[in-house]
Simulated assay, not measured.
Amino acid sequence: MSTKTNAGNFFEDFRIGQVLAHATPRTVTEGDIALYTALYGSRFAVNSSATFAMDIGLEDAPLDDLLAFHIAFGKTVPDVSLNAVANLGYADGRFGEPVLAGDTLTTTSTVIGLKENSNGKTGVVYVRSTGVNQRGEMVVDYVRWVMVNKRDTSKPAPEPVVPDLPAVVDASALRVPVGLSLEDYDTVLAGSPYLWDDYEIGEKIDHVDGMTIEEAEHMMATRLYQNTAKVHFNQFEQAKGRFGKRLIYGGHIISLARALSFNGLANAFKIVAINAGSHCNPTFSGDTIHAWTEVLDKVEFSERQDLGALRLRTVATKDLPCADFPYKDADGKYLPNVVLDFDYTVLMPRRVG
C-alpha cells in the first residue's frame, strides 16, 4: 500500500523544541459565525450585533473568542493529537487581536514538554500553540498537554521535561481591544444590569439552563474546526474501544458552558485569558450539560476606570443540575458527572461615577 498518507505523530516522534507548522490556513466567514451560533446558541451582544460592537469602538462584531480558539486548535490535531488517548489540560492561554469575518488563521506549535507514562504505552506531550491572522498578529496563544500513544512500546523513554506553567495569566498580559470605549455600552441590549462592581470574590452563579448534546451537532461542530481526531468520528474504531462509542470534543463542552453562562454573566463580553482547564470526564451524545461559575478574583486596570476583569471558574456537569453541587469527593477527585473545570478571565464594564 502507498505510504503517502499521514498516520500522525506518536509519542516517540516528538522532541523538545520541535516546531510544528500546521497545514490548512482557515479563512473565517459569516457562515462559520452563523453555524457556531446555531450549534451553541451563544447570546453575547458584542458577538451578535455589529452595531453593538461598533458602538463600543470595535471595527465590527468579532468572532466569539472560543470559535477563534477552536479553529486554531483544530489546525494542531493532525500533528499533535491524532493518536491521542485524551486531551488533558490547558494553561497560560491569552487572546490577542479580535478575529473578524474574512480573517485567515494559521497555527504553529512548539513542543515544550515530554513525559512517558509508567505503563510504557503512552506519554504526555506539552505544546505551546500560537494562532495568528493574515498580518501575523497573535489572536490566541496557549499551552495544552495531551496523552499520546506510542507506536513502539520498546522505544526508550526520553528524559522527562515538564514545563513550569503559571497558575494564572498575569494581569499585565491581558489584552484590551484597541479602541474599546464603553461610554455607550447598553446593558439593556446586553441582557443584564450586573456589571463588574456587582460581583464578589467567592460568589457562585448557577446558570440554571441545560443543553442536551445530539450526535450530529457535536460531529458537525468538530468538522467546523477541521479537527480530525478519530475518537470523535469513527464509530467503527470506537466500538472496539473503552467506551464503545464516539467521544465528544472537549472544546464542544467549553463552548456549551460559555453559552450557558450568559444567564448570570451576560456582560462578560470578552475572554482574555485561559488560566487552566481540565476535561474531567468524557461526554457522549445524549448527555445534558449544566454549568455554574465561581468568581475567583477581580482585576482592576489602573489606566481604565470603565473596565475591569473577572477571573472565573466555570464547572460543567452532565445529567445533573448544578445548584449547590459538590464537584469533588472527599479525596479531591472529580465526581463522575463533572465534565469540565475551566478557569478563565473575562472583561466586563464597570460603573463610572
Rank of each mutant, 00 (worst) to 15 (best):
I56L: 06
T317W: 00
T122F: 10
I248A: 09
F284Q: 08
Y334G: 01
W145N: 11
L260A: 07
T76Y: 03
V127G: 00
F69K: 01
K318M: 12
D60S: 13
I205F: 06
K245F: 07
D341H: 12
R135F: 04
A323L: 13
V352S: 04
A221T: 02
H218D: 06
V28A: 06
V169E: 05
A101M: 00
T27A: 10
S48C: 09
A173I: 02
I201F: 00
D206F: 04
G136I: 09
G251Y: 10
R175T: 15
V176C: 10
N117G: 02
V85I: 14
D197V: 05
A173H: 11
M220P: 00
M147I: 09
S192V: 08
D324Q: 13
A229G: 11
L296N: 12
Y126P: 00
S278E: 14
G113P: 11
T317M: 06
N275S: 02
K333L: 09
F236S: 14
M348H: 04
I205P: 04
I213G: 02
G251E: 08
L340I: 05
A330F: 01
T222S: 14
G120T: 10
N267E: 07
T76V: 08
V295C: 10
W145R: 01
D331R: 13
V140R: 00
G244I: 10
D65K: 00
G244Q: 11
V178Q: 14
